[in-house]
Amino acid sequence: MAVKVLILEDNPVARGFLCRVVRESFSDVDSITEASDLDAARRLLGHAPGGRATPSADPFQLVMVDLELPDGSGLELLTELSSYPATRIVTTLYSDDEHLFPALQCGADGYLLKEDRFEVLVEELQKIVRGQPPLSPAIARRLLNHFRSGEGLAGNGHGVAEPPAPGAPSPATAPAPLDHERLTPRESEVLTYLSKGFTIKEIASLMGIKWFTVNDHIKSIYKKLNVSSRAEAAVLASKQGLV
């Protein structure tokens, strides 16, 4: 089955560039659909403006979204894709907090700068297969500096939580909810492979499924176990006897 990709970008030169990046990044991608505005993207995704995208029998597995579009903001589409089983990557020229944090709040799984070199974008996009968020180097540094400086310890307009009230358990020590009984057999199998250090591509080969499907299982596992990384998932799985 061909991996389907949707690229939402109003600039035709940038669209062509991103198409080349995608084809260079993934050997199993041979279906790339292009959209130049929100309306066209919504039609391709099969939902009405302002509504939520509902997966079809043959959904897109990767959606790349520009933020500044002729008929609105790419943030609108990211919000509408909250229940859509695709990896959502922002591709933009903006590296400032005013664009970065709202995009992450709206559900972006990665944030890439179109001004980066072709080779850098390919390398960052390939991180999806390894279970890592694709972030342009400048964006990764910005996020790191943001939390190192302590800005993430107080509400700042970017959706960062306030400090816990006196006597409340800190986020670092609060126990994760024991939702492991909700894992499906497939998710449990993926979690086992993750805990043993296999990459997404290796897991896909072992299970006989597409790596985008493995990626979807991992996102579901993270959500159910209330973790945000492979390491956290592996530790929790070991503690709870899941693997």
Rank of each mutant, 00 (worst) to 15 (best):
D96I: 06
V160M: 15
E76H: 08
S229V: 06
N226T: 12
K201F: 07
D37F: 10
S170K: 11
I218F: 07
R15M: 13
A172E: 15
L75C: 08
G131P: 02
I218G: 08
D58R: 13
H99S: 12
D37W: 11
S83Y: 01
A231Y: 10
S27D: 12
S82C: 15
V129R: 08
P166S: 11
G110V: 02
A14Y: 10
K210L: 07
F101V: 11
M1N: 15
V29K: 02
D71A: 01
H180N: 12
P169C: 03
R88L: 14
D116V: 00
P163H: 00
N11F: 08
T79E: 07
I128P: 04
P12C: 14
K210I: 03
K224I: 11
D216E: 08
L178V: 07
L113F: 06
L8M: 14
L69C: 06
A103L: 00
L100F: 06
A57F: 06
T199C: 14
S195Q: 08
D37C: 15
P85T: 06
G16H: 06
M1S: 15
D216S: 14
E98R: 14
I209V: 09
H217E: 15
S56Q: 14
L112N: 00
G241W: 03
G208R: 05
S238F: 11
D28L: 15
E68P: 12
H158F: 03
I203K: 07
L153C: 03
H99L: 11
P49F: 02
Q132M: 12
G241P: 04
D116W: 00
H146I: 04
A174M: 13
D28F: 12
P133R: 12
S205Y: 12
F26R: 01
T173G: 13
Q105G: 11
Q240M: 06
Q105D: 08
S136E: 04
T199V: 12
A14D: 15
L78K: 03
I128N: 02
L143S: 05
T33I: 15
A140L: 07
A41G: 07
G110S: 01
S36Y: 09
V3H: 08
K224P: 09
K4L: 13
G155Q: 04
G72L: 00
S56F: 07
A165D: 13
L236S: 04
G157M: 01
P171L: 08
Q132W: 05
Y111C: 03
G167N: 08
E98W: 10
L104P: 04
Y193R: 14
A2D: 15
F60T: 03
I32R: 10
Y222T: 11
N11E: 07
K219W: 04
L78C: 02
P163R: 02
L6V: 12
L44Y: 00
K219R: 10
L143H: 03
D97K: 06
E24C: 07
A168W: 08
G241R: 04
K196A: 15
A233W: 00
G110P: 00
Q105E: 07
R148A: 06
P164H: 03
P12Q: 14
D216W: 09
M207T: 00
V29A: 10
L18T: 07
I221T: 03
Y84W: 07
G107Y: 00
L178W: 13
